[in-house]
Amino acid sequence: MPHCPNCQSTNVVKNGRIHNGKQNHRCRDCGRQFVENPQQKISSAETKQFIDKLLLEKILLAGIARVCNVSELWRQNYVNQKYEAIPKQVNVSSKKKARLIVQCNEMWSFVGNKQQKYWIWLALDIDTSEIVGLYVGAHDEFGARQLWASLPPVYRQCAVAYTDFWQAYGMVFSDKRHKAMGKETGKASSIERFNCTLRQRVLHLVRKTLSFSKKVENHIGAVWLFVHHYNASLSR
């Protein structure tokens, strides 16, 4: 005779079946519904911390589920919630109002399929190597404006931005605060190196793969997760 896990009563009756076909029971004394020998388990805080670390490496989500011995459904729900909760604002060290120099660039990847490109706009402080601006979206004037808006106020007031010749920058950045340079000048070397790091560490951004994001929210969340981790690692 099954016992109620809530009140230990044996006054229980069968109450249909759950999604996987197992017999469901209901306690007549306290109303609790339950199954015997449930397969679902609660993942520990240590498991979640381990998954958080694995999300910062180029590992398939299915592989994370196998390594951590969790179901793919639980893993996906956990990842969805984590990406949704990530702050979409850069966290950088405080700066004085003085001349600042940033390098800006854009890189692309896919969401859903290879016909749907999303562009990652980035701004990097060449003195501290911090990512000080980030936007994920369209490759147009609106994208450039969102990158500009993502910069902390001190950068919008004091920074000179080195960019490529993409015309959207000239529509947003003032002439005295904007310098368009070719790759041969080396003025974009730091941000291009970070772009390479980002592609090497975030699986969603690898071009020749079937692992690109299926959800825009997760694509954006994965980028923000790594950027927060990267900036935090610079101060250690």
Rank of each mutant, 00 (worst) to 15 (best):
A222I: 03
H178D: 12
L124A: 01
A45D: 12
V111Q: 04
G182P: 11
L54P: 04
W224L: 04
G143A: 08
I86A: 03
R207Y: 14
I120K: 06
G16K: 00
A222W: 09
N80S: 04
W224A: 05
L210A: 09
H219C: 12
Q8I: 04
E36F: 04
M171P: 00
R66T: 10
L61A: 08
K183R: 15
S43R: 12
F226C: 01
T185F: 15
N218L: 13
H178N: 14
S233W: 07
N80I: 05
F142I: 06
Q157F: 08
S93F: 08
F212E: 02
G221M: 12
E192Q: 14
A159N: 09
L203G: 00
V216M: 13
A161I: 04
Y118V: 15
L56K: 02
D164S: 06
G21L: 04
P152M: 10
Q167A: 06
V172A: 06
I120H: 00
G31A: 10
S9W: 10
Q39P: 05
G63L: 01
G143C: 11
Q115T: 14
Q115G: 13
L54G: 03
S43E: 14
W121E: 00
S189F: 15
S129I: 07
Y83G: 02
G182R: 14
P2I: 13
N15Q: 07
Y169Q: 01
T10V: 07
P87Y: 10
C196N: 09
A144E: 06
C196E: 11
